[in-house]
Simulated scan of single mutants.
Amino acid sequence: MRRRRAVVGVMGAGEGASAGAVALAVALGECSSARGWVLLSGGRPVGVMAATSRGAARVEGHLVVGVVPTGGNGDDRPTTADVDLALFTAMGSARNVINVLSADVVVVCGGGGPGTASEAAHALKANRPLILLAVPPLWHDFFCSPGEGVESASDVDACCRLIEARLRMP
């Protein structure tokens, strides 16, 4: 019997992503694909979304899913070229719930703005494992409440070990 591949959702800043967050996202995308995980992001051609997709696409056998906020018509912003499967939701920011509920583990890479914060909050509300990768201290203060099950990593290797551990949990 064929087993479903794990889905790792990587969330982070779009247009305002720092160079450091982009570099981490590329490495995280590679790490995810190398382990056979499906990479899920917002699918747009900017910031963490584009970088993590680009990293994943470097690995043979990758699968990159982009959950896009627009409807897919000719007037919409395009997806990043590295997305294998684009899901056009026409839901705007409401698609953040789809991102979270479609992922087995959610990683916030480098922090972000209100959209990324909403994805982190939805992960907590939906009891999805949430890993904060190299986020600013304010993110730790807000999301790492006692008993919430949020984990932190400062580098991609540590993050991938945390993902593996969460995927093994029942």
Rank of each mutant, 00 (worst) to 15 (best):
R2M: 10
R4S: 13
R4D: 12
R5W: 06
A6H: 11
V7F: 08
V7T: 13
S18C: 00
G20T: 01
G20H: 00
A21M: 01
A21F: 01
A23H: 13
L28V: 03
G29R: 01
C31S: 14
C31R: 15
S32Y: 03
G36S: 10
V38D: 11
S41T: 15
G42E: 01
G43M: 01
G43K: 01
V46T: 02
V48H: 01
S53A: 15
G55Q: 03
A56S: 12
A57Q: 04
R58P: 04
R58C: 10
G61R: 02
L63M: 10
L63V: 13
V64P: 07
G66N: 03
V67T: 04
V67A: 08
V68Q: 03
T70E: 15
G71R: 12
G71K: 09
G72R: 04
D75M: 15
D75R: 14
D75Y: 12
R77N: 10
R77F: 11
P78Y: 10
T80I: 12
L85W: 06
A86P: 15
T89V: 02
A90G: 14
M91R: 14
M91Q: 15
G92D: 05
S93M: 11
A94S: 10
R95E: 04
L101V: 15
V105M: 09
V106N: 08
V107Q: 03
V108G: 02
C109N: 01
G111M: 00
G111H: 01
G112K: 00
G115S: 08
T116G: 09
A117L: 07
S118L: 05
S118Y: 05
A120D: 12
A121H: 14
A121V: 07
H122M: 06
H122Y: 15
H122C: 09
L124I: 06
L124N: 07
K125H: 12
A126C: 05
A126P: 05
A126S: 09
A126D: 11
R128T: 05
P129K: 06
P129S: 04
L130R: 08
L130H: 04
L138V: 13
W139P: 06
H140L: 11
F143K: 12
C144D: 14
S145Y: 06
P146D: 11
E148I: 03
V150E: 09
E151G: 04
E151P: 04
S152Q: 15
V156Y: 07
D157A: 12
A158E: 15
A158W: 13
C159L: 02
C160A: 15
R166Q: 12
L167N: 13
L167M: 07
R168M: 05
